[in-house]
């Protein structure tokens, strides 16, 4: 693959220790969020105080890595000060880019901190040339994080027509709904993915086992899956549950509990002109982050050098041991 620019490996950092782990394992950049509703992974025990993020920036910069601050949920009317403060704080501690999705947050960032590098979050759901160029023109975004719904061929075509860099997900959890446009958690639990940064909150998940050891999983009042003894499954979300419709019973109506794994498509993505490769998983353990980041570091370096790396280890790390190329491989996924 000589002659191609080596893509940046963008890795998750849910905690300060996770950030150091990812940087040490070879991340070119880490992304992280501040505590509270301002980012799309507002889970208990995750995320950074401003002071912690400042320390993270110092640590990463010292090792030649970048820090990208995800402030990518949708500020709610009447409490936008929380998001504005998060943007101001992130800029003041010297993050390398702010990742945002909301038009209002984008307008605030572009107006108040015009020199700050701005990446358009996947939560903006910008999946067409025109949508991406709208954000480029309106807010001067430098990079778009693409929704996980495009094929590699479509990404290559997009690359030639848009005015910014492309960051694409390559590994980790894959939500089935268009990012930034899913109210399912909100409908069931009252906590909103868009406004609170919450998806399928653990506080609303309940398990009940019957006499035959069948395990029913509930989110709020609704049974979203029933697992018989011995079956493996991932973290329960509405879009990976099993349901009944008239034509089919007890099936994964939206998607099986699988993880995205584009290891085999990495050379194609690099040829398609992708600037940055993103690994999902700010909620995952340090051991997981270390293993995944190291493996991808080796894979990207090997592909770039024209070698064929051994990528079999990554399968063991996917959700429930099941993997998919999602939309990236072929249109038949749709």
């Amino acid at each position: 693959m000589t002659g191609l620019q080596k893509p940046e490996l963008v890795c998750p950092a849910g905690t300060p220790a996770g950030l150091r782990t990812a940087v040490d394992a070879g991340a070119d950049a880490v992304y992280c969020g501040l505590k509270g509703p301002t980012n799309a992974r507002n889970f208990p025990g995750l995320n950074f105080t401003v002071a912690e993020m400042a320390e993270g920036v110092a640590y990463a910069h010292d090792k030649g890595a970048k820090v990208l601050a995800a402030i990518n949920s949708f500020p709610t009317a009447g409490r936008t000060d929380i998001w504005k403060a998060a943007i101001d704080d992130a800029v003041s501690i010297g993050v390398d880019a702010v990742i945002a999705a909301d038009i209002g947050a984008g307008a605030y960032l572009a107006r108040t901190h015009p020199a700050q590098r701005f990446h358009l979050s996947v939560q903006a759901g910008a999946s067409s040339v025109e949508a991406i160029n709208y954000y480029c023109r309106s807010f001067g975004i430098k990079r778009v994080v693409l929704p996980r719904i495009l094929t590699v061929a479509e990404i290559a075509e997009l690359h030639s027509e848009i005015e910014c860099e492309i960051e694409a997900f390559i590994f980790g959890n894959i939500g089935m709904m268009a990012e930034g446009r899913c109210l399912l958690t909100s409908y069931v639990t009252g906590q909103s993915t868009n406004m609170d940064g919450v998806c399928s909150p653990a506080s609303h998940v309940h398990y009940a086992e019957d006499a035959d050891q069948n395990l029913t999983t509930r989110l709020g009042e609704f049974a979203i899956d029933c697992v018989s003894c011995g079956q493996t499954t991932g973290y329960p979300t509405i879009c990976k549950g099993r349901y009944d419709t008239a034509p089919k019973k007890g099936y994964y109506a939206f998607e099986e509990p699988v993880s995205l794994n584009l290891t085999k498509l990495l050379p194609d993505l690099m040829r398609a002109g992708v600037t940055a490769l993103k690994i999902e998983g700010r909620q995952r353990s340090r051991a997981y982050v270390r293993a995944v980041v190291s493996a991808f570091r080796q894979a990207v370096d090997a592909y770039h050098a024209g070698a064929d790396p051994d990528i079999s280890d990554l399968l063991a790390l996917t959700e429930g041991g099941k993997e998919t190329q999602g939309a990236f491989g072929s249109k038949t996924w749709r």
């Binding site: 949708f74 009317a77 038009i103 446009r181």
Partner: peptide
Amino acid sequence: DASALWHLGGRPHAVGPYLNVYNEESLEFL
């Protein structure tokens, strides 16, 4: 969606419920 805004290029229009407008700043910009 934002691609419609791109084509509109500032002409007067309505904004539908699928375009996320959650706050005052978004409203002002649009």
